[in-house]
C-alpha cells in the first residue's frame, strides 16, 4: 500500500505555527537592534542635522513623524489584506494570527499620523482639522481599524472570527484607494503626493534623507512588534486550547478563557 499523504513543502513547514515559534525567536532581537539604531540616526537627522524648510520653517520636522506613520498605517492594512486573502483562500492558521496582530499596530500608526497632522496643521493651515477627502478618509481608516479590533474581541471562536474579519478587511481595502486618490479627486488643504510621483521626488535630498531613515525606522519597528505579537497570539491560542483540555480532563463543563 502506498501512502497518499503528501509531505508539506519548505514554506508550508516554515509557516506552521509551531515552526514559526522556533525560527522567529531568532528574529526578534536583531530586528529590535536595527530599529533602535535606525531611530537614533533618524531622530538625529530629523531634529539636529536637517535644515528648516524655506516655506514651512521648523514645522517641516513634524513631517518626519507624520509621513512614515501615514505610510505605515496603509502598509499595515496591506499586510492585513494579504493575510485576509490567506485566511479565505488557504485557511492558513498563521494568516489570521498575522491579521489580528497587525490591527492594533496599524491603529496606533494611524492615530500618530492623524495627531501629528493636526499639530502640523494648526500653525501651517491655521486649523487642525478640515472635513476634506484626505483627512476624512484617514479618520475612516482609523475607525475601520477600531472596528476590526472590536470584532476580534467580540467572537469567542477565533477561527470563525478570522474568516468574517477577513471579508470585512478586504472590503475596507476600497478606503486605501480613496485615501491615496483623495488629494486628486477633491479640493483639499492637504498637499498632493510629493515623494513618489511620476517626475520623481519634489523634495530636496536634505529633507528626503531624514524622511526615508525614519520610514525605515518605523518599518523595522512594525516588523519587530508584528513578529512579537504573532508569537504572543500563537501562545494565547495554545493557552486557550490547554485550558479547554484541562477542563475536559477534570470532567467539568469547559470554561476556558476565550483566546482574545
Amino acid at each position: 500500500m502506498t501512502s497518499e499523504t503528501k509531505s508539506p513543502g519548505f514554506f508550508s513547514r516554515l509557516a506552521h505555527p509551531g515552526q514559526f515559534l522556533v525560527w522567529s525567536r531568532y528574529l526578534v532581537w536583531p530586528l529590535a537592534g536595527l530599529t533602535v539604531i535606525l531611530f537614533a540616526i533618524g531622530l538625529y537627522l530629523a531634529l539636529v542635522a536637517s535644515p528648516a524648510d524655506y516655506q514651512m520653517g521648523e514645522t517641516v520636522r513634524i513631517m518626519y513623524m507624520h509621513v512614515p506613520n501615514a505610510w505605515l498605517s496603509m502598509m499595515c492594512y496591506g499586510v492585513m489584506a494579504v493575510a485576509a486573502f490567506g485566511t479565505l483562500v488557504w485557511r492558513h492558521p498563521l494568516a489570521d494570527v498575522a491579521a489580528k496582530s497587525a490591527a492594533p499596530l496599524g491603529a496606533i500608526f494611524t492615530a500618530i499620523a492623524l495627531l501629528t497632522g493636526i499639530v502640523w496643521g494648526i500653525p501651517t493651515w491655521g486649523t487642525g482639522w478640515v472635513w476634506d477627502g484626505r483627512l476624512t478618509s484617514m479618520l475612516l481608516h482609523f475607525l475601520i481599524y477600531l472596528g476590526i479590533i472590536a470584532m476580534w474581541f467580540t467572537f469567542e471562536d477565533q477561527h470563525r472570527a478570522g474568516r468574517i474579519i477577513a471579508v470585512f478587511t478586504l472590503i475596507g481595502v476600497v478606503n486605501l484607494v480613496v485615501i491615496h486618490y483623495s488629494v486628486e479627486w477633491w479640493s483639499t488643504l492637504h498637499q498632493p503626493a510629493s515623494v513618489f510621483t511620476a517626475e520623481g521626488p519634489k523634495m530636496p535630498l536634505e529633507l528626503l534623507t531624514p524622511l526615508f531613515v525614519n520610514l525605515f525606522a518605523f518599518s523595522f519597528l512594525f516588523a519587530t512588534l508584528q513578529v512579537v505579537s504573532m508569537r504572543t497570539e500563537i501562545m494565547r491560542r495554545r493557552v486557550a486550547a490547554m485550558q479547554r483540555q484541562a477542563a475536559m480532563n477534570r470532567g467539568a463543563a469547559p470554561s476556558p478563557e476565550p483566546a482574545r
Binding site: L47, V48, A49, A52, G57, E58, T59, R61, I62, M65, H66, N69, P104, L105, I108, A111, I112, L115, T116, V119, W120, I122, P123, L221, L225
Partner: peptide, 25 residues
C-alpha cells in the same frame, strides 16, 4: 538644528505624542 521660538512647541508636541504612543505600544 532646530531653532527655539520657531514653532518649536508644535514640533515638541508632535514628537512627544508620537514617541509616547510608540513607547506605550
Amino acid at each position: 538644528m532646530i531653532e527655539a521660538g520657531m514653532h518649536w512647541d508644535y514640533v515638541a508636541t508632535a514628537y512627544a505624542m508620537s514617541l509616547g504612543l510608540i513607547l506605550a505600544v
